[in-house]
């Protein structure tokens, strides 16, 4: 019983931490229809910035803000590469992702950086008010919900309306006398800021940075968004942001299940990839059924 409970708590922790990234992917994939691979670089970028700052004794919340800023900057780069230099969307992301590998190494100075004695958001400040047994999961959920609420608010502002319009009907954005490219860049900035924040939270939770921790991040993000959208397909009153978060928990639940069934944790990326493939196949089958 206790083992099951700890697995469930673990799933919720991971699900809500990765859920923050899924919220970002929701912007690029769902709203902008932009397959943004930079996430594979900005997720570890957030972690690298956090790890570097924490080992220097920075306040862990400040470290999160710094990660957000770094992610936003990387998103800006992808946006400029795509919009100003007219590079294809997939390639723009790959360029940023590849460049970030080196930048992440430069930030931390090495491919692994552990910090077991520093203050993190999970063991200092307001965290101490929460019972130790559920500290991580409570903080992870709280952070994800705050991010979701901020995003819901943003999507109802004028700027958010324009972003939604951008994914819906780009002709209309032009008709509104707005530069479609600029709106896209804003979306990429937001998405990558969230991916970096997600990486930063994960880094603080596991207390180490590792250069390959971003590999497959985009797949987890896309998988989460697609699962979430499918779960709530017939419930239009559920917001897309809620769906993305729930999707992330389900996705992480599936990978955790595979490991609980005996697969070694080193198989994680393979599990992530196969699961994503399964999600895509099921998704396209269902669409095919509808057409038939």
């Amino acid at each position: 019983m206790e083992a099951v409970l700890s697995i469930i708590i673990g799933i919720l922790e991971q699900g809500f931490i990765y859920g923050v990234m899924a919220l970002g992917v929701y912007i690029t994939y769902r709203i902008l229809d932009f397959p943004d691979l930079s996430v594979d670089g900005t997720f570890p970028l957030g972690a690298a910035v956090t790890a570097m700052l924490l080992t220097k004794g920075t306040n862990p919340y400040l470290a999160l803000l710094a990660a957000i800023a770094a992610g936003a900057l990387a998103g800006l780069c992808t946006g400029i590469i795509h919009v100003k230099f007219k590079v294809k969307d997939l390639l723009s992301g790959i360029i940023t992702m590849t460049a970030l590998y080196t930048i992440n190494l430069r930030i931390t100075g090495r491919s692994n950086l552990a910090f077991f004695n520093e203050n993190t958001i999970f063991n200092s400040g307001i965290a101490l008010w929460i019972p130790q047994s559920c500290r991580i999961v409570v903080i992870a959920i709280l952070l994800a919900i705050v991010v979701k609420l901020v995003m819901d608010w943003y999507l109802h502002t004028k700027s958010g309306f324009l972003l939604s319009a951008c994914g819906d009907n780009k002709t209309l954005v032009t008709s509104l006398a707005k530069d479609f490219g600029k709106v896209k860049i804003v979306g990429l900035i937001l998405a990558n800021a969230l991916a970096a924040l997600s990486g930063a939270i994960l880094c603080q939770q596991q207390r180490f940075f590792e250069i390959s921790m971003g590999t497959g991040a985009i797949i987890t993000g896309l998988g989460s968004v697609i699962i979430g959208m499918n779960i709530f397909k017939h419930m239009t009153f559920i917001q897309g942001t809620t769906a993305a978060l729930v999707g992330a928990v389900v996705y992480k639940g599936c990978t955790a299940l595979a490991i609980a069934l005996g697969l070694p944790t080193t198989d994680m990326k393979l599990i992530t990839a196969v699961l994503f493939l399964a999600v895509l196949v099921i998704n396209s089958r269902e669409k095919g059924d509808k057409r038939a």
Partner: peptide
Amino acid sequence: GTCPSMTILQNMALADNKGKLFGL
């Protein structure tokens, strides 16, 4: 000429803001 995933009200508001700042 319209945004399908947004409501009638939201579409009208979008059009109403043409030429102005789309801020927060």
